[in-house]
């Protein structure tokens, strides 16, 4: 199959990773051989492969969602294609990509690789870090996106940053078109649409950090 990354983008990534990657990054990919159930698995696997070839600090581990049930369960992987990242110490960054990270979301994937190479050290305001102390029980942030939505990466990255910062938070990107039932369940018709704890809270739009955190914390406080 022809390369998905243009030569220009490939070179850009080689340079960027050379400069930015500190430690090793292991990307776990869960796919399925059943093409009718996972239209984008093959394409996702290929783009990850090409990504790994841009730096020797990045490795990809491919897993089969159907055959490796125990492993999928261990990482709470619920559907495919799924991507998650482990740092050099094998620590799960608690970020998930469900669906192909294409279009504008490819940038989110790259940012996450860089943050993972720094063991999940992310830039957040002091205020946010303080507020996250209040998150004492598991919290799931699902960010529904489409690849053509220019506002969406901001929301995805915010959810992912919060997950890297707080050990109780899991941050997910969900490509809405690939998971129509789930999107329907949460009435997603305008993106980014953020679902907190399976529907305990929700909001729409790429809010600035403070407002985003406020929304998340309001659910924690109600509980």
């Amino acid at each position: 199959m022809a390369a998905l990354l243009s030569e220009e983008d490939r070179k850009y990534l080689v340079d960027l990773f050379e400069k930015e990657l500190k430690g090793e990054v292991k990307i776990l990919f869960f796919g399925s051989k059943k093409k009718e159930e996972c239209e984008y698995c093959e394409l996702t696997e290929q783009i990850l492969q090409e990504l790994a070839e841009t730096s020797n600090k990045i490795t990809i581990e491919n897993h089969d969602f159907d055959d490796e049930e125990a492993l999928a369960k261990q990482y709470n992987v619920e559907m495919v294609p799924a991507i998650l990242m482990l740092d050099a110490n094998g620590k799960d960054m608690r970020i998930r990509f469900y669906g192909i990270p294409s279009g504008y979301e490819f940038s989110s994937l790259i940012e996450d690789v860089i943050a993972t190479s720094k063991n999940g050290a992310v830039e957040l305001s002091k205020d946010t870090i303080e507020k996250l102390q209040d998150v004492k029980s598991p919290l799931k942030l699902q960010v529904f996106v489409t690849p053509t939505c220019p506002y969406c990466p901001k929301a995805v990255l915010m959810a992912h940053k919060l997950a890297m910062q707080s050990s109780n938070i899991v941050g997910e990107m969900i490509e809405a078109n690939e998971f129509p039932d789930l999107s329907m369940q949460y009435n997603v018709s305008s993106v980014p649409h953020i679902i907190i704890n399976d529907g305990e809270g929700e909001f729409v739009g790429a809010l600035p950090e403070e407002a985003f955190v406020e929304q998340v914390i309001s659910v924690v406080k109600e509980a």
């Binding site: 489409t146 939505c149 809405a176 999107s183 649409h193």
Partner: peptide, 17 residues
């Protein structure tokens, strides 16, 4: 109905329709 059918961005949300 902001997130239930009202949109200001066809390229973002068009695919839901």
């Amino acid at each position: 109905f902001l997130n239930r059918g009202v949109s200001y961005c066809a390229v973002c949300d068009g695919s839901f329709f």
